[in-house]
């Protein structure tokens, strides 16, 4: 199970990484923004992407559009703030599979991941 973590904040990445590790996901790659992620995503070929919305250089939404545009199929969970929630509609149309609102609990995130992967598996 390979997960690509995309967030400009190192702290946030570490938190998410900690949660993922707890959940048993060990193969984790990190990217600091959308551009960085684009350069890594094809080689790493993740099974799941956790994408922050607000990032420098290329934001999460643009990244999702580009990734899907290039035929990327892996499920994406968007990490948003409460304030960005109204924009999730945009993200969904860009191809996001699920979203989680910051701040989240380990249980919350693991629940979102499970939901998302279950749905992918079912399809």
């Amino acid at each position: 199970m390979k997960v690509l973590l995309i967030d400009d904040s190192r702290t946030m990445r570490n938190i998410q990484k900690g949660i993922l590790t707890q959940l048993g996901y060990t193969e984790i790659e990190e990217a600091a923004d959308g551009l960085d992620a684009l350069s890594k995503v094809l080689a790493f070929n993740p099974d799941l992407l956790l994408v922050d919305w607000n990032m420098p250089n290329m934001d999460g939404l643009s990244f999702v559009k580009q990734y899907r545009g290039k035929g990327g199929k892996a499920p994406i969970i968007m990490v948003t703030t409460e304030a960005e929630k109204t924009r999730v509609v945009e993200a969904i149309k860009a191809g996001v599979n699920n979203y989680v609102v910051k701040p989240f609990t380990p249980e919350g995130l693991s629940e979102r991941i499970r939901e998302t992967l279950d749905r992918v598996a079912a399809a």
Partner: peptide
Amino acid sequence: LPPQKLDLIEFMVAD
């Protein structure tokens, strides 16, 4: 649906 998805329904209906 999970609660975070239900949360969006109002936006989605319009959309």
